[in-house]
């Protein structure tokens, strides 16, 4: 199975990279952007066929390494 883990800064945590991107978009004339935030995407190929077991494994990985839950939230998607 494949898993995609999206990691984003928690709301309220300052994201200077997002701010810089927002600013650059405005400079380019994209005036309708209200906010920009930068996250990460980790894709995993798992040796597991059961979606529930896969999810619980990836959940454990996200907590132990992929995300720093002090500053980040994560979201897991499982696909065949």
């Amino acid at each position: 199975m494949k898993a995609r883990v999206t990691i984003e800064l928690k709301p309220g945590v300052l994201d200077p990279q997002g701010k810089a991107i927002h600013h650059a978009l405005e400079v380019l004339g994209f005036s309708g952007v209200k906010d920009a935030r930068v996250g990460k995407l980790v894709t995993l190929e798992l040796d597991e066929d059961d979606p529930e077991r896969a999810r619980s494994q990836v959940e454990d990985m996200a907590k132990k390494l992929l995300a720093n839950t002090v500053i980040e939230n994560y979201r897991i998607e499982i696909a065949d």
Partner: peptide
Amino acid sequence: ALMRNAGL
């Protein structure tokens, strides 16, 4: 946690 410097 230690994050990217505010001034980037």
